[in-house]
């Protein structure tokens, strides 16, 4: 126990500082403001891998490390789409994941945001859109923001989540009637 406490003390707080006019950091400061301003509570995110090579998942994981500390900003990854405000979806969507992805989308309460991540989530990427690969996430469910990159860095992912919040503010979050885009 003593060793554990000593290690915690020695490590200190490694989360990178908030404000300062640095691009990457400004994203994060702005993100917190948007969350407080629009949702007034934590943003609940559900991650769905719809067919990726697992590279995108590695960088989503990195968001939760103490250096990016996304939970410290109020963004929380949840275990069920029923608890989620935002779906983070990696692609390319495979034939076998089409139905599960549609079900996740249906199970997520309105108003909901969808951020497609990675080159493959944006347009099918290196796997293209043929055979068992259906390509972009937007080919299966409506997408608010697409974050390219192979894989996108944690800061790019944060920027994408922010962009989705901005888009939803402009559209008024309470909008109804966005059906399945098939």
């Amino acid at each position: 126990m003593l060793k554990t406490l000593r290690q915690i003390r020695r490590t200190g707080i490694v989360t990178e500082p908030m404000p300062a006019p640095d691009d990457a950091l400004r994203i994060r400061a702005a993100l917190e403001r948007r969350i407080l301003g629009i949702l007034g509570r934590a943003l609940a995110v559900r991650m769905v891998d719809a067919g990726s090579c697992n590279g995108c998942e590695l960088e989503v994981h990195a968001l939760t490390n103490p250096i990016y500390n996304i939970e410290g900003l109020g963004v929380h990854f949840v275990a069920s789409p029923r608890h989620a405000d935002l779906l983070l979806v990696s692609g390319p969507v495979t034939v076998a994941m089409r139905e599960p992805l549609l079900r996740v989308y249906e199970a997520t309460p309105d108003p909901k945001l969808v951020v497609a991540i990675g080159d493959c989530g944006c347009d099918g990427g290196i796997f293209g859109c043929r055979g068992p690969s259906l390509g972009a996430v937007a080919n299966v469910i409506p997408v608010d923001v697409a974050v390219p990159g192979c894989p996108p860095s944690p800061n790019r992912l944060l920027a994408g989540i922010l962009a989705a919040l901005d888009a939803s503010a402009a559209l008024d979050v309470g909008q109804e009637g966005r059906g399945r885009a098939e």
Binding site: T94, M97, P100, I126, S133
Partner: peptide, 14 residues
Amino acid sequence: LGYVHKGIEQRFVE
């Protein structure tokens, strides 16, 4: 398994 089968082998020949 097989949910993330993307047809990589077929893709290679392109």
